[in-house]
Simulated scan of single mutants.
Amino acid sequence: MSEFSDGWNRWRQQRWAAVDGEFGIAALVATHWLSTTPQALPGLPGEWHVERGDIVGDDLTIEAGGEALLGGVLLKHMQRDDQIALRVFDPDSPGRTSLDRIDVFPLDAEWKTHGVFTPAVDESVGIEAIDGYVQDTAVAGHVRFEIGGESASFVVTGEGPEKFATFGDATNGVDTYGFRFLRIRVEGDDGAAIVDFNRAYLPNCAFADGYVCPLPPASNRLHVRVPAGERAVVRGD
């Protein structure tokens, strides 16, 4: 097999491990938004509240960015602006145990193209999440490229050589989920970037309720079909 297909197959294996792992993406069962007032949470003992940015239970404290095991489930601290939530991951959740596979389009080099990354200077954009919340997000820059005969420019975020984009295309709602994610690697000081839609992947919210995935900004919605990358979650009987 070629280096191109070998790399894609390794990427698919890594994606499946991230989704179907014991406490992977598909194992999420709840996202509980908390306040300073203690409250009981379904399936968890005691009461839970926020104290100086930490999540505090009766006998457990989870610091910002932290996690803890409790009775076979994994609890994770999540923060969005000044909002704090407790996420619960259960390896026995139906969302994980019913998974069969992730359906993908066939690998096709036509959907791997070159682009140019231009850094942004003090730029931000309001990104709407799937629950309607709008978060002011720092823009890393813009990636210009051509795909399917269309010129496009994606708003991207992230530090380092790998940038992140949420995008839509004409397959959404027909052959694919409503939108997808893509990592774009910037190589070299000249801004040269690799835009490989064969590695477009489903957002976390395609696997479990409770995720608050970012929706594509207007500039990241393509008018053409992009039949590449992950299509849909397939579940067993």
Rank of each mutant, 00 (worst) to 15 (best):
Q135H: 11
W111Y: 11
T113F: 05
P119N: 03
I127M: 15
W111G: 12
T113C: 02
V134M: 04
G126K: 12
E123T: 06
V139C: 10
E123V: 05
G115K: 12
G126W: 09
A129W: 02
L107W: 04
V116E: 14
E110D: 09
A138I: 07
G126I: 00
I130Y: 01
A138S: 12
I130V: 11
I127T: 08
Y133L: 04
K112D: 13
V116R: 14
H114S: 15
G115D: 13
V125H: 01
I127V: 15
A109K: 14
A140N: 03
V134W: 01
L107R: 15
A129P: 01
D108N: 15
D131K: 08
G132I: 02
L107Y: 06
W111Q: 09
W111D: 09
D136R: 09
V139Y: 10
F117P: 04
A109G: 05
A120I: 04
E128M: 06
A109D: 13
E128V: 04
E110C: 04
D108A: 06
E128C: 00
Y133W: 11
I130D: 10
D108K: 02
L107C: 10
A140I: 05
W111N: 10
T118Q: 07
D122P: 00
I127E: 09
D108Y: 08
E123K: 03
T118W: 00
G132E: 04
I127S: 11
T118D: 07
V121Q: 13
Y133A: 08
H114I: 10
I127N: 08
D122H: 07
I127K: 11
Y133E: 09
D136Y: 03
D108R: 07
T137L: 08
E128T: 12
T113L: 03
E110S: 15
A120W: 01
L107K: 03
G126L: 12
D108E: 06
P119A: 06
S124G: 12
E123P: 00
E110P: 00
D136K: 11
L107I: 13
Q135D: 07
S124P: 02
D131C: 07
Y133C: 01
Q135S: 11
G115R: 12
A109R: 15
T113D: 05
Y133V: 10
D131H: 04
F117R: 05
I130E: 12
